[in-house]
Nucleic acid binder design. Structure first.
Lengths: 242, 242
DNA sequence: CCAATAGTGTCTATTAGACAATATAAG
DNA sequence: CTTATATTGTCTAATAGACACTATTGG
């Protein structure tokens, strides 16, 4: 904030006449669908003059100083545009800025990551879900979005070891075995049933609803997220596979 | 990255003629001195037209698109300018951007946090160490730097519960009781000696040097950080005080 | 009754925490 | 020997993991 390019003549207006980097926001949007973690991507326009034409990229774009109150609002707007989802779990992931990441000039992006349930919202026509397989995406992405996505996957996996984040990937009502399956998909390894149940139930993050999920076997208790619950941090990780 | 303000006429040069936010980098620099955690602050200039004249602020400033290859390099440069330290522990903290945080216009800052040993480097003349007392700074800071600092303190404390981060606050050689004192200063509570030693020694992050620290009592083994060691993540937190 | 999945209980191994015991220096 | 701090050991409590057992549905 100091103002390096400070010249001798400071008008009332300050000394702000130096080149500014481009400022963008990108959002890594995850959901669980089928048996895998999925990320939402959009296709870059084919127009001449556009960088990475027709490549797939994270949803995002320039900060609009007229429309966006702040960075989080900008991210929420972009998420709503692409998915229709209003209030997802949305967390800042980090920022990436350099002279070379965008051919149009020095640019910095503020990356967010969001978790939404499978069925939530309605997808924009230019957006598509891509499965994360073996902890990575097969396809190459525009800009440095591959790096950003890799960081997001790592952050998600990391946090899933010791937080209740996967709860935000669940539909409104779900069973404990459902939740365990989501943990297992994200971590890509199986967890022990009784330890899992003990941990989740003692975390005071979910509450039973007066319904059961019925099937061709013993019915399972349905739960929902407790309202206004921040993510819970466990004091231990799930024991990593050495 | 999509490019919302996309107009109909795309020249070869693209369509980049819309207002850009200001882009800055700020660095929260911590050290341990005496018996407390300290943060480095600089005083804002008194010149007319400058926001928050003479207020204390985090070291930082505008990204210089000619000088700075990327954000981390920019942060490292600012850190070196103020402290002389070349290769500290430097981690991205997050970004803060809004229409109102800087009176000069829409601005976004990329915040980093750095840990340096007490004696390292030489302070710039306009910089001063301020103690963190009771987990907070007494003084008000310029811009939203109070918020940024609070976030940095929280992140540091959080990570100290389950990582080896405090090792980066230590001088080249230190004893286990020294290291424990630093953990205790940051966490602001005492830790149990033998559990602490067991955890640190089994983390394989430090190695003994062939020297002892002598005093009016039993000498203590001196250790140093293992070279090129990433921070270590423990699988449990130190047991929080219930 | 059988198949299938939900949910509980029992045992063991690990480890943090409490705290006592021992070690090694200076004076 | 005394004081002070470093370092180690012993015991206990908590809990994750392994795994077996019981419960409850549909067919």
């Amino acid at each position: 904030m100091a103002g390096e390019p400070r010249s001798k003549d400071l008008g009332k207006s300050g000394q702000l006449d130096f080149p500014r980097p481009l400022t963008t926001v990108d959002v890594v949007i995850f959901t669980i669908s089928g048996d895998s973690l999925q990320v939402l991507l959009v296709q870059r326009p084919a127009d001449e003059g556009e960088p990475f034409p027709q490549a797939w990229a994270l949803p995002g774009g320039f900060v609009d100083v007229a429309k966006d109150r702040d960075l989080a609002a900008c991210a929420a707007r972009k998420l709503k545009d692409k998915t229709g989802v209003m209030s997802p779990y949305l967390e800042q992931l980090g920022s990436w800025g350099s002279a070379t990441r965008d051919p149009r000039g020095w640019s910095a992006t503020h990356a967010y990551f969001a978790l939404i349930p499978d069925d939530a919202g309605t997808l924009a026509p230019d957006a598509r879900w891509f499965p994360i397989q073996g902890g990575r995406l097969k396809d190459k992405l525009a800009f440095d979005h591959g790096d950003i996505l890799a960081t997001a996957i790592q952050r998600l996996r990391n946090k899933v070891e010791y937080t209740s984040l996967p709860a935000y990937l669940m539909p409104a009502e779900f069973t404990l075995p459902d939740l365990q399956r989501v943990y297992e998909i994200v971590l890509d390894r199986s967890l022990e049933k009784s330890a899992f149940r003990t941990r989740i139930l003692s975390a005071d993050m979910i509450e039973p609803v007066a319904k059961m999920r019925r099937g061709p076997n013993r019915p399972a208790q349905l739960y929902r997220l407790k309202k206004g619950r921040e993510p819970v941090y466990f004091v231990r990780t799930f024991n990593p596979p050495e």
